[in-house]
């Protein structure tokens, strides 16, 4: 459904995309995972015909993003990373506007947005600016869906949204996938990666890997440890100084630890106790997408 071959794009001297390639099948949820400034938005804008790439070619449903931009604009739904509905129009007016702009009506495609719209319908006369973050994103998705697009482009749809709404949002994406809609989604949240069919990890305009989330985790292929003590910051610096430690980085409330040689685990623990760390815990933990990302960035 989407075919990207070696797309590159520079803004002046800054190279935002350094040649990325991937393809997305019909009815797939494809996630582009990476930190801010990695080039996610640029990639989305090129695929949605809003920007021209400096090099490479891209196709959406076999249509060239440069030459056939008019046809592509009719059949895709796009939700930019920032809130981009009209704040001074009400929920209903926004939805009606986007329906008319695409030459359709709310009634015609109501079945597509029904589940989503039910949540926001009680506020349909409220102005969009007065909605909560989650509500705004639901409305934006409704507006992007109202013309029954074949492909959905969602640029960081869950940024700034509370965990419950995020979960609901992803459930909604699963339902849309079931209806045969292809979804390209980007997110800075690594935990959302597992909800995609396949993911591309992106950093500094380059793809680090393109695989299913499971394959990405399997490829990690090392023992990962979780560690904590009473003085977390000193623990981090002390561990990093240690010659046995391959890598150590903060991860939520604990640190994640990679060793050069697993057998030295007990010795390491003792060394840390000798340095005056109290309540020190070092135990194996499960590899997450974020760990893969950290490892791939360092390679």
């Amino acid at each position: 459904m989407i075919q990207v071959n070696d797309i590159g794009k520079s803004y002046g001297k800054v190279e935002a995309l350094k040649g990325i390639s991937f393809s997305v099948d019909k009815g797939e949820i494809f996630g582009i995972i990476g930190p801010d400034g990695a080039g996610k938005t640029t990639a989305f804008r090129i695929l949605t015909t809003l920007l021209l790439a400096d090099k490479g070619e891209a196709f959406v449903d076999k249509l060239d993003v440069k030459r056939d931009f008019k046809k592509i604009r009719k059949m895709i739904g796009y939700m930019p990373g920032h809130f981009s509905l009209y704040p001074d129009l009400s929920v209903e007016e926004n939805l009606e506007l986007f329906a008319s702009v695409f030459g359709t009506t709310i009634q015609q495609n109501y079945h597509l947005i029904e589940d989503l719209y039910r949540h926001i319908e009680p506020f349909k006369t409220r102005r969009a600016e007065k909605l909560s973050g989650g509500m705004k994103q639901k409305l934006a998705l409704c507006c992007a869906l109202i013309h029954a697009p074949k492909v959905l482009f969602l640029d960081e749809p869950t940024t700034g949204v509370d965990p419950t709404s995020r979960k609901e949002f992803w459930q909604m994406l699963k339902k849309l996938k079931a209806q045969g809609i292809t979804i390209l989604v980007s997110t800075p949240y690594m935990d959302e990666a597992t909800l995609c069919d396949r993911i591309a990890l992106i950093k500094d305009g380059r793809f680090l890997s393109v695989q299913t989330p499971q394959e990405t985790v399997n490829r990690f292929n090392e023992n990962l440890y979780e560690t904590s003590s009473t003085d977390m910051f000193r623990l981090l610096t002390d561990l990093r100084k240690n010659s046995e430690v391959k890598d150590c980085y903060t991860f939520g409330a604990s640190h994640h630890l990679l060793l050069k040689n697993d057998s030295s685990l007990e010795a390491l623990k003792k060394k840390m106790l000798a340095l005056g760390h109290q309540d020190i815990v070092i135990r194996p933990t499960e590899v997450t997408i974020e760990d893969c990302f950290m490892k791939l960035t360092k390679e």
Binding site: L50, S84, V101, G103
Partner: peptide, 13 residues
């Protein structure tokens, strides 16, 4: 500036 033009451009209009 607000990005609404971005959404409008990706439409048949």
């Amino acid at each position: 500036e607000s990005g609404t033009l971005e959404v409008l451009l990706v439409s048949p209009m």
